[in-house]
Amino acid sequence: MTEEIIIAGFGGQGVLSMGKILAYSGIMQDQEVSWMPSYGPEMRGGTANVTVILSDERISSPVLNQFDTAIILNQQSLDKFESTVKPGGVLLYDPNGIVHPPTRKDIAIYRIRAAEFASKVGLAKVFNMIVLGAFLKIKPIVDESNIEKGLQKSLPERHHKMIPENLKAVKIGKDNVELMQEV
């Protein structure tokens, strides 16, 4: 199994940390992982993205231009990355702020109203985990127990008290992801 993912949105939405938790969860189940962020000027107040690869084999290129899954959290990122999803692949997006929804017909498209749920249940800080939950419902590539272990590894100890909230957010994402279009 190899899963090549791009996660893209605004800086501050938790794009990079979502990727990190996913990568750590992969390590917890003995997989090879890579996490390659965009860094530099575009991070400061602009868009941020990270390429995450989980694989049972040694990972070759950490830099890709085609992905199995694109997780998209703003319009700029949708415009930039919709075309990079492999035919038959998955595009998951949060409709918050999206004016022009995806148009591809050869990919599966899912929607998660993560920003809306996050503010409704007062879990704004774990918005990204709602998105992660939605992704894991579509592609259960890591076990729930390994997500918890991944959180323990990637969060500093002083934030461990937030782990139950994070897991609750994952569940909200799993329960509320909507299939918009099959391949």
């Binding site: 090879e32 996490w35 390659m36 860094y39 950490p62 830099v63």
Partner: peptide, 9 residues
């Protein structure tokens, strides 16, 4: 910058 910035096991 690729090898410096990327995370791996």
């Amino acid at each position: 910058g690729v090898i410096g910035q990327m995370m791996e096991k």
